[in-house]
């Protein structure tokens, strides 16, 4: 979420790419610039929700979400320079340095980088839900039982610790400058802010078909069994449709939000680290085989060596056993053989 200070970015570029004589454009820190927009939008949603209904906030939940956002921003600023330095180091091994071409900073290249980064985000996000190592960080964004614009700012504090920035390596190895990669990532993040609302029911059909929308993302945040592990998109919903993870919102199954095992505290440190600590505890238990320890680290959330917990796949299977008429509907497996 954060960007390295401009001077540090330029220093890194000159240090690690001494041959580069094409200056990067002076890109604005867009996430920072969006802060007034974030705050104003939350105020507007809150006011509309109070006046006409359809959106709900709770004081302690909102405080937790906003402080998680502030913490994420702070950590981003603190470690952003190091991550930028790492990506710049990797970037020098790219077969072509796009930033050094005469067209290296052309608007169409930004657009191309944005689409490829959105594709990258889809897979990062999918893995963040399906592999506990990354889920232990991303879970924070899903830990509120509310779904409003403050939930969008409930961001992880441990993303960098869990090495999520490695998912950006392919882009810089393709030749995109780390500055451009960070910039389009910021745009993607800002796009995803406005879809965290219950105030908007549906967008026009053409928009719903191509873009991630409040309806699609409500499904993503829902704990209803059919909605688990669905709609991973950042900006473009087409990736979910291409890779079979798209589930439409149903009028007869209103989303309920949060985690399949809800938190029982607003304590910020517990919210930020509960799954990471749980994962470490599980993986370091006595008497487990190496394979079982790896299962706790890299298996799907809910995996357990003794079957005492359930993964999303198992929950969906159980649901279909309970309601056989729903087998094969979007988000649910077909009938058991």
């Amino acid at each position: 979420m954060g960007c390295a200070p401009r001077q540090l970015r330029l220093s890194c570029t000159r240090l690690l790419n001494p041959g580069s004589d094409v200056p990067a454009p002076d890109l604005p820190p867009i996430v920072q610039l969006a802060v007034p927009f974030f705050m104003g939008s939350i105020g507007l949603e809150l006011a509309l929700g109070y006046i006409r209904g359809g959106a709900r906030y709770e004081t302690r939940d909102t405080l937790t979400s906003l402080l998680m956002g502030v913490g994420n921003l702070t950590i981003g600023i603190l470690v952003g320079g190091a991550i930028y330095g790492f990506l710049s180091y990797v970037h020098q091994f790219a077969p072509v340095q796009l930033g050094e071409q005469s067209w290296g900073w052309a608007p169409w290249l930004f657009a191309l980088c944005f689409v490829i980064d959105d594709f990258r985000y889809y897979w990062y996000h999918r893995i963040a839900h399906e592999v506990r190592w990354f889920w232990s960080s991303h879970i924070n964004h899903h830990s509120s039982q509310h779904y409003n614009l403050s939930t969008a700012l409930r961001q992880t504090w441990t993303s960098e610790l869990m090495l999520s920035f490695l998912f950006r390596v392919p882009l810089v190895l393709m030749g995109f400058d780390p500055v451009m990669v960070a910039f389009v990532g910021g745009i993607n993040l800002i796009y995803q802010f406005w879809i965290h609302t219950e105030l908007i029911d549906r967008m026009p059909a053409w928009f719903e078909a191509v873009f991630n929308t409040p309806s699609h993302h409500r499904v993503h945040h829902a704990v209803n069994t059919r909605y688990l592990d669905a709609n991973y998109a950042g900006t473009l919903i087409i990736w979910d449709k291409m890779f079979g993870s798209f589930v439409p919102e149903r009028a007869d199954d209103a989303p309920r939000y949060g985690l399949t095992t809800q938190l029982g505290t607003f304590n910020l440190l517990r919210v930020a680290f509960h799954e990471l600590i749980g994962m470490i505890r599980d993986a370091t238990r006595r008497g487990l085989s190496t394979r079982q320890r790896l299962g706790y680290l890299f298996g799907p959330p809910g995996w357990s060596h003794d079957g005492s917990r359930k993964t999303a796949t198992q929950l969906k299977r159980d649901h279909v056993e309970r309601f056989p008429d729903q087998a094969g509907l979007p988000g649910l497996p077909g009938p058991a053989a």
């Binding site: 705050m39 809150l46 906003l66």
Partner: peptide, 14 residues
């Protein structure tokens, strides 16, 4: 902006 926005939001909610 952050402190004011956060404080104002919480005060309004309460």
């Amino acid at each position: 902006l952050i402190v004011g926005g956060l404080g104002g939001t919480l005060a309004a909610l309460h």
